[in-house]
Structure formats: structure tokens, C-alpha cells
């Protein structure tokens, strides 16, 4: 059902057996490096430390050091993607598109979290469990009804009664 579809078969080695650019790794390097550079620049917007507290290492120094390390690692990742060794080319798996089921499942997770705010916890639990189960191909409706009814009751007992959590309500 949720088979991953291959969209990029240009990775690994070319017809002459030479390693070719690993596009997915290069994109990762660019995202990580770009993000780190952006955050590095952001450290210059941190509030100034008052003189009475300005002793020792300032609050921006350590994050900057870590971000520089991240930038260095992203450059290394990018370099390896541009100039892969034969060994890494042999191991390299072509990039595949993310299956639709992942997006749909992620959408349901998001709706569940949004639902907690608007319709309350217990209705959200029921709707989410049934919807995800159906989305994933379950068709034993009776079993779905019984299982998730019992589970919702257990959630109520555990969180509301035993742990005294004020679960979100409508």
C-alpha cells in the first residue's frame, strides 16, 4: 500500500563507473548550512549584557561556536556529496519521494493537536484514532469501534481520574 516511489536514479555511479554528485546529500548540506548561517546572524540580535553582568563568556559566544561547528560539518557533508568516494557511491541510495501516506498521517497528527484546542481531548482521541486506523487500511469496523471506545475510556481514567490532569475540553 505505501510503497515509496523512486524519482531520482541518477545517484551512485555513472555509466563509466565514476561516482556522481549525491543530490539529496547536497540539499541536506545546503539546508543545514543555510539554517546555521541564519541562526549565526541571529545571535547578533541578542540583547546586550549589562556591564554589571558582563563577566566571563557572553551569552552569544557558545551558540556561535556551536553554529560554526555546524557550518563546518555542513560544508564537509556538501563536499562529500560533490566529490563522493567510490565506496560511498556504492552505498548511496537514490532519493525517493515521500509516500503520500506520510503526508496524510502527518496531517491527521496536526489535526489532532488542533482538535485538542477546539473540540476537547476525548472527542479528538476518538476521531483521530478512527481516522488514522481507517487511513492505514483497517476495515474491521466493529473491532475499531470496540477497541477505541475502550481505549478512550482508559485515557479518561488514566489522565483525568488517576493523574488528575485537566484534559482540554470544548
Amino acid at each position: 500500500m505505501a510503497k515509496e516511489t523512486e524519482i531520482d536514479s541518477g545517484a551512485g555511479v555513472d555509466p563509466d563507473g565514476d561516482p556522481v554528485v549525491q543530490k539529496a546529500e547536497l540539499v541536506q548540506a545546503l539546508i543545514i548550512g543555510g539554517g546555521a548561517v541564519g541562526l549565526f546572524l541571529l545571535t547578533f540580535t541578542f540583547d546586550e549584557v549589562s556591564e554589571s553582568l558582563a563577566q566571563g563568556i557572553g551569552p552569544a559566544v557558545f551558540p556561535r561556536a556551536i553554529l560554526l561547528i555546524l557550518i563546518f560539518l555542513a560544508v564537509l557533508l556538501g563536499y562529500r556529496a560533490l566529490k563522493p568516494t567510490l565506496e560511498s557511491a556504492a552505498k548511496y541510495k537514490p532519493a525517493k519521494s515521500i509516500p503520500k501516506i506520510v503526508y496524510l498521517s502527518a496531517g491527521l497528527l496536526t489535526l489532532f493537536v488542533v482538535g485538542l484546542n477546539f473540540i476537547g481531548a476525548l472527542p479528538s482521541v476518538v476521531v483521530f484514532c478512527v481516522a488514522l486506523s481507517l487511513l492505514w487500511g483497517e476495515r474491521r469496523y466493529g473491532l475499531i469501534a470496540v477497541t477505541f471506545a475502550i481505549f478512550t475510556g482508559a485515557v479518561y481514567l488514566l489522565f483525568d481520574i488517576a493523574l488528575n490532569t485537566n484534559l482540554p475540553t470544548m
Binding site: 497528527l109 493537536v113 486506523s133 492505514w136 475499531i144 477505541f148 481505549f151 493523574l163 482540554p168
Partner: peptide, 18 residues
């Protein structure tokens, strides 16, 4: 998995909330 994982996520979300 169609029964297990919805329950796991609910426990995760409400646990994080609690």
C-alpha cells in the same frame, strides 16, 4: 499497526500535555 500506533500517538500527545 492500525490499532497500535493511533493509541501510541494519543499517549504521546496527552503525556506531553500532562
Amino acid at each position: 499497526a492500525t490499532f497500535l500506533w493511533p493509541m501510541v500517538f494519543v499517549m504521546a500527545a496527552l503525556g506531553a500535555f500532562s
